[in-house]
Design a protein around this nucleic acid. Structure first.
Lengths: 343, 343
DNA sequence: TACAACAATGTTAGCGCTAACATGTTAGCG
DNA sequence: CGCTAACATGTTAGCGCTAACATTGTTGTA
């Protein structure tokens, strides 16, 4: 019945030196050793030096897991993107990373593969790591995920597009971007423009651009048409798209591609086939990737400020994390129509 | 003198539900609730279902920080790369990420910006998070960092190039890759090849390729020359490199670029200027990026299996993490000379 | 029938750190 | 010189979870 006092159990996790050992060596209590690292101004200079020396001698590496549990704060920023194959997200990550790393935060990277169920699972995991903030690409989430994000009491940043966000939002208006390009095509006198995208089912931001495109065409009395390729966006897909477009709709005079990968592929392919651009067919893209701007004729496209999205999102979050009240929850980073020689 | 028993202090970290609350609701002890999640086979099905229901009702999110401290294991894989601007590293990350995420690990991403002091700091931080393993690009580290990695009792994987590694190593032989391309150029009859790189000081793998290149040229009785651009590698830099090369060494008959970005830029620029490739000047690269293979004339380059590096590294690490003894510490993923029409 | 082997669950004691409070020590000042 | 404020350091008790061992009941089997 009675539980006999069992012999003491020992369980040292790793054999790494601990703060207590450092403290002992320096002849102070462990809280002083802790403060020597985390609140140096609260410790006498000489004492602090002794502690730091002891750390050095022991090869002490702070156990951040323990610290995080005790303080219920980690210095993680969860970043969730739908794909790593797409330069666009990489550049956003780059912007986030450089700003956060400088402020002493770590990036926890998650990839949803365009699956919002996976996003939900990642959000749970990252919340479990008590991340300080979450950044996620896009406004689409499962209901459960939205609930989780709303109730998690941490800043949540949704990037890429603008809309009805949960908390903070940095991005651009993709419908408006679609409109801008379509307007440009209509203004230039193209009368049978075609919108060509790859895997539009996944890429709903491209769908939004198409919506803007369609709107303008209808307003101008033309009937919008879309051609969907089932390959992933790539140079080859763009080349194939050009051929299919001209075969299936021989009177097409302008192709508005969903992004620059497709558009550049089409443009290079047109050069190769001797199709004159823009005389025989105009080509336009979206993103403003370096390749499109390097080719002759230069690609007409829309510059999306991806690095800016990352940096601005990071700055806003840092403000919030430092306790400052954020006045604007939404930031439109805009876009720029780059008129090249392909339209 | 005597410490009076102070009133009990309370300190709830967050107001998230805890395992204990879940356990209470399900009418079990917290260890059973824990096992319901982490070792389901050790819990009766009916009990487990009660626990899971309770978790659901409370909106329980496991505190992974606490779990990690208690078990002194995290499911983090630290990945340290020198840059996110370079596709090459992104593709390695992609390979690592897809394999590890499927196995239930999280990626902790660090960027050194080609600074080994920063690498050292990142390693410390990541070790502090008790990551399960570390992956780092390259074999160059500070002495302190090397010591840390050697003593950390966790699998360490060095990727990209082969050499005298700390623990595990997956990569390819860059000197040999440089030799292979130089041999190809010599075999094709080029007699005044030039090696052109960007920021070679940072990019020591490119330096290794140059070493291989130089070796072959010397063996063939030619004198190797290198032209270093001070811009970052890009299409523009490649174009500039082509012009500078032809201006400064007018008799150059082949340019061996340090990578495909430069080579593709040069190739497209040559087309634009009407310089015939390879008749007037041959162009070769390294990496096998899609653009080079898409252009006509197709770029002669070396395919580096970046995705494979990531996947293989991840697989080997998983083996190790599952306790299997790893027999081979080093894996040469090789490379493939892609002979295009530009040489 | 006794006893091992297993399955299901519980008890206890940390993991290594920091928040919250307490205490001692020195400086500042009328 | 007494009192307070500011500084420097210490004590205690967790943070939420899981390892290690303990306990019970159930089954198989020699």
């Amino acid at each position: 019945m009675s539980t006999h006092p069992p012999q003491p159990r020992h369980r040292r996790g790793s054999d790494q030196p601990t703060l207590a050992q450092v403290a002992e060596m320096a002849g102070v209590s462990s809280i002083t050793a802790s403060r020597a690292l985390n609140a140096p101004e609260r410790v006498n200079d000489a004492t602090r030096q002794r502690v730091l020396d002891a750390m050095d001698r022991l090869g002490y590496v702070p156990n951040l897991v323990a610290g995080s549990l005790a303080s219920s704060r980690s210095r993680f920023i969860a970043v969730i993107v739908p794909s790593l194959a797409n330069t666009v997200f990489i550049e956003v990550i780059k912007g986030l990373q450089s700003t956060f790393e400088a402020a002493g935060y770590q990036i926890l990277l998650g990839n949803t593969d365009y699956d919002i169920e996976r996003e939900h699972r990642l959000v749970r995991t990252f919340l479990g790591w008590s991340c300080s903030a979450l950044v996620t690409a896009g406004l689409r989430h499962t209901d459960a995920c939205r609930k989780l994000l709303k109730g998690c009491d941490r800043p949540v940043m949704e990037v890429m597009e603008l809309g009805d966000a949960l908390d903070l939002n940095v991005g651009l208006d993709h419908v408006e971007a679609g409109r801008a390009m379509a307007r440009h095509l209509v203004d230039r006198g193209y009368r049978r423009p075609l919108f060509v995208g790859a895997r539009l089912g996944d890429d709903y931001r491209a769908q939004m651009r198409y919506r803007g495109h369609a709107e303008i065409l209808e307003a101008a009395g033309m009937s919008p048409t879309v051609l969907e390729l089932d390959q992933l966006g790539s140079l080859e897909a763009g080349a194939a798209g050009l051929e299919r477009a001209r075969r299936e709709t021989p009177d097409v005079d302008a192709i508005h591609f969903a992004n620059d990968d497709l558009a550049s592929g089409a443009l290079l392919h047109a050069l190769r086939l001797g199709i004159r651009v823009p005389e025989e067919v105009a080509i336009a893209g979206f993103n403003g990737l370096p390749l499109g701007q390097f080719i002759t004729p230069r690609l007409t496209t829309i510059q999306s400020p991806r690095d800016t999205i990352g940096r601005l999102a990071a700055q806003e979050l840092l403000q919030r994390l430092e306790g400052k009240r954020v006045t604007r929850r939404q930031h439109d980073v805009g876009f720029e129509l780059l008129i090249g020689d392909s339209t």
